[in-house]
């Protein structure tokens, strides 16, 4: 048996679990939304490992407890953090209040890499900062940009083809570049304080 035959046999066990529907009413009931993280810029001095472990696993491990204040969806929230870091990797389980009143747990890890190649575990606060910016597409088709305490509905800008946006947040001038395909966001980058052509960026107010 070839690798291809073996592979297909092993993965033929995977099947979608529930019927697909594209009726508008069904979609309204799902109340689903998607969020995107910015693409990691080349040379970024960090390795982020997001969602490496499930909540049940994390809850059984235990670890040093701490509290971190972080930004999620434009809101300041207090996260309970369990520290499972090793000598090389900062690994934490964050628990925050969820939108439906129930707490949500995520495991996040990362290693900071200095220009000389030296590595150190990232802190919980550094990893929490990664979630302070987010782009959310809601079920009604609106696109929201969150950056620390700022939130903007950028649906109309993207529909008009304006893919370069700038705003002031957390003491910085922030520049966003969106890559679109068929009107849908494929990815975006976030740059701080300086870009080649700042006049090309539309200020968000």
């Amino acid at each position: 048996m070839t690798n291809k035959e073996r592979y297909r046999r092993a993965f033929s066990t995977l099947h979608a679990s529930y019927p697909v529907s594209w009726e508008e009413k069904t979609m309204e009931k799902t109340n689903r939304h998607f969020k995107m993280r910015p693409a990691l810029a080349a040379g970024l001095a960090a390795v982020l490992l997001v969602g490496c472990a499930g909540a049940a696993y994390a809850a059984n491990v235990g670890g040093i407890q701490q509290t971190v204040r972080m930004w999620l969806g434009g809101q300041s929230v207090e996260a309970q953090v369990e520290d499972h870091s090793t000598q090389d990797v900062g690994a934490y389980t964050f628990t925050v209040p969820g939108p439906d009143g129930q707490s949500v747990t995520r495991s996040v890890g990362g290693t900071a890499i200095a220009p000389d190649g030296a590595r150190r575990p990232m802190s919980a606060q550094e990893l929490a900062e990664d979630f302070a910016t987010e782009v959310v597409e809601t079920e009604d088709g609106a696109v929201w940009l969150y950056d620390h305490d700022k939130s903007y509905d950028i649906t109309a800008h993207l529909a008009d083809g304006q893919t370069r946006l700038t705003l002031e947040a957390d003491g910085h001038t922030v520049y966003y570049d969106f890559a679109l395909e068929d009107g849908e966001i494929l990815s975006y980058t976030r740059l701080l304080d300086s870009v080649d052509a700042p006049e090309a960026y539309l200020p968000l107010t």
Binding site: F34, K35, M36, R37, G51, G54, A56, Y57, P99, F131
Partner: peptide, 16 residues
Amino acid sequence: RAVNVTRSWWRRRSVP
């Protein structure tokens, strides 16, 4: 879409 889901804070990773 799957990549976006995995990068979302609110992903539904309910079963290990």
